[in-house]
């Protein structure tokens, strides 16, 4: 959380990229304490690995420093405080942290935990749900990842080909 605040202050984008990597790693630790080992694993691999590398790649292609802000931060702060207050008001109805009788725990989860041993017989319940019960969902997610890859390809490599073709026509 402190790292997030440091991100707000840092002028150097290089420092920002590094801080966001550290932030991911810390949040992975938080996920471990919240019993979500699969999620922590993913966050550590993705956040601290891939996205930092991509961020650095972008910085090499763009600018290394941020220009100091010209607007006054009053209006954004106001917006942020109002939104935050609304969200905190919304949490007042939520069950206490770790409450076993919370609505989220009593409906689907016991079903998965009781049935997956004899229906799927895979020790890792997360995998069982991911691949089998919610197979459609995961198919959609993979499609999104695929589409993002195609999008990046279109954005970043289309122009090069066009330039090369132009170069050929010129010569």
């Amino acid at each position: 959380m402190l790292t997030a605040l440091a991100v707000v202050r840092a002028q150097s984008l290089f420092a920002t990229a590094m801080l966001s990597g550290a932030f991911s790693l810390l949040s992975a630790l938080l996920f471990v304490t919240l019993d979500a080992v699969d999620v922590a694993f993913t966050e550590a691999a993705v956040g601290a690995g891939i996205s930092t590398v991509l961020m650095l790649g972008t910085l090499a292609l763009t600018a290394r420093f941020e220009r100091p802000a010209t607007h006054s931060p009053v209006i954004p702060l106001f917006v942020v405080f109002v939104t935050g207050a609304a969200l905190i008001y919304g949490t007042l109805d939520m069950p206490n942290f770790g409450d076993p009788n919370a609505p989220a725990q009593v409906h689907l989860a016991p079903d998965f935990i009781q049935n997956s041993p004899h229906e799927i017989d895979v020790p890792n319940i997360v995998t069982a749900i991911l691949a089998s019960y919610r197979g459609f969902d995961t198919l959609g997610e993979v499609a999104v990842v695929f589409t993002a890859g195609v999008g990046v390809l279109l954005l970043l490599s289309g122009l090069r080909h066009r330039r090369r073709r132009q170069g050929k026509e010129d010569s």
Binding site: D38, F41, A45, I50, V122, P123, N124, V126, T127, A128
Partner: peptide, 17 residues
């Protein structure tokens, strides 16, 4: 991935690393 934390998403990321 069936037996311990892990699966296709994580493995893909690690392999690409």
């Amino acid at each position: 991935g069936d037996y311990s934390p892990g699966g296709g998403f994580q493995a893909g990321v690690i392999m690409s690393v």
